[in-house]
């Protein structure tokens, strides 16, 4: 399915993930938070990962960069390659180096993702000193430049302040400055605007997009809102219950989803043409218990198109016309390039 998500460029994809799995040992048994996800991401492109809360988006990307680990009792499987290099095979030291230099990450809540007792300038400069060998003065100077770049007024003063002295939107800008400080090749943004005021959400997304374009970074943009991914991601991967259930170029998804869950997500989007007070149609039902996975399609209990086969057998992600979906009764058969 590699070709589906990204047009193949010579030299192979920047990030290549094969059969990623994450399980948590819980009192109720093994909880499969991520269950065999594969995708590729080309340099300079943006992949949107979309799905309901609890579908495993955060766990997936965190596992890619080694941030769900032995500490939480997680079992991590699969293969991850960055620039062709097998990331999981690296020594701890080399892995940290790769993480610090080549990957930047922005978390959902800037209230908790910045160290409350460390000055902002130092938090930005820290990675520079470690990964780019800058001395303290140079790192501090660069930190101020980065603050300017992410649009923070009075950068010198802000650099010597603590996170609690900034507004949420400003903090997220600081978090972005930290993420891009070492010129990473890949930027991961895990619901970067969910915790923010509606008024600043757009600004932050624009900032991310601008930085990505300027620096030619690849970006993974996680969101539970297809609308956020719409204008900004080249490709979209829809996740449900720890699995990728649909993958396609963004415009294909909006033109015609193949998987009923994607369709449901699309339908829950507010449309500009709707009267202002139309209620959003949330998807009825709840996602399955990840520790008690039954047979069959995990979306079946909530799916209006389900058949007997859906409850007995499990659909695998199949490719059709350059896109992938996991469903026995795909929608929009005519929308696909081939039947």
């Amino acid at each position: 399915m590699s070709g589906a998500v990204s047009g193949a460029v010579s030299g192979g994809p920047l990030l290549s993930v094969r059969d990623a799995r994450v399980g948590f040992g819980t009192v109720r048994g093994l909880l499969r938070a991520v269950d065999g996800v594969s995708f590729d991401l080309e340099a300079g492109r943006t992949l949107g990962i979309v799905g309901e809360s609890g579908s495993g988006k955060s766990v997936l990307v965190r596992s890619l960069i080694g941030l769900v680990g032995s500490g939480s009792g997680a079992i991590v499987g699969g293969e991850v390659r960055l620039d062709g290099q097998d990331v999981r095979g690296l020594s701890a030291k080399n892995f940290r180096q790769l993480l610090g230099r080549d990957i930047g990450i922005v978390f959902q809540d800037p209230m908790t993702s910045l160290n409350p007792v460390m000055k902002i300038g130092r938090q930005i400069g820290e990675g520079l000193r470690l990964n780019r060998g800058l001395n303290a003065t140079a790192a501090a100077r660069r930190a101020v430049e980065l603050l300017v770049e992410v649009g923070i007024p009075e950068p010198e003063r802000r650099a010597s302040q603590y996170p609690h002295e900034l507004s949420g939107g400003m903090r997220q800008r600081v978090a972005i400055a930290i993420a891009i400080a070492c010129e990473p090749k890949l930027l991961i943004a895990d619901e970067p605007t969910t915790a923010l005021d509606v008024t600043v959400q757009r600004q932050i997304l624009d900032l991310l997009q601008r930085e990505q374009r300027q620096r030619g970074m690849a970006m993974i943009l996680i969101t539970h809102d297809l609308g956020v991914a719409a204008g900004r991601a080249d490709d979209i991967m829809v996740m449900y219950a720890g699995r990728a259930v649909e993958m396609a170029a963004t415009r294909e998804i909006f033109r015609g989803p193949r998987m009923p869950y994607t369709e449901a997500l699309l339908r829950s989007l507010p449309r500009l043409s709707d009267p202002t007070h139309t209620r959003l149609s949330a998807i009825p039902g709840r996602p399955p218990d990840l520790a008690r996975r039954g047979t069959g399609c995990s979306f079946a209990p909530r799916c209006t198109y389900r058949s007997e086969r859906c409850e007995a057998e499990e659909p695998v992600l199949s490719r059709e016309g350059g896109r992938g979906f996991a469903c026995f009764h795909p929608l929009n058969a005519s929308a696909g390039t081939s039947a």
Binding site: R62, I65, G66, L67, G71, K93, R96, Q97, L98, L99, G100, R101, I103, G104, I105, F107, Q108, D109, T112, S113, L114, N115, P116, E126, G127, L130, N131, A175, I178
Partner: peptide, 15 residues
């Protein structure tokens, strides 16, 4: 150690 800012510190490549 469960806080996000610890994850971020690890993501910076700190040992």
């Amino acid at each position: 150690l469960k806080e996000d800012f610890i994850l971020l510190a690890r993501a910076k490549g700190l040992p």
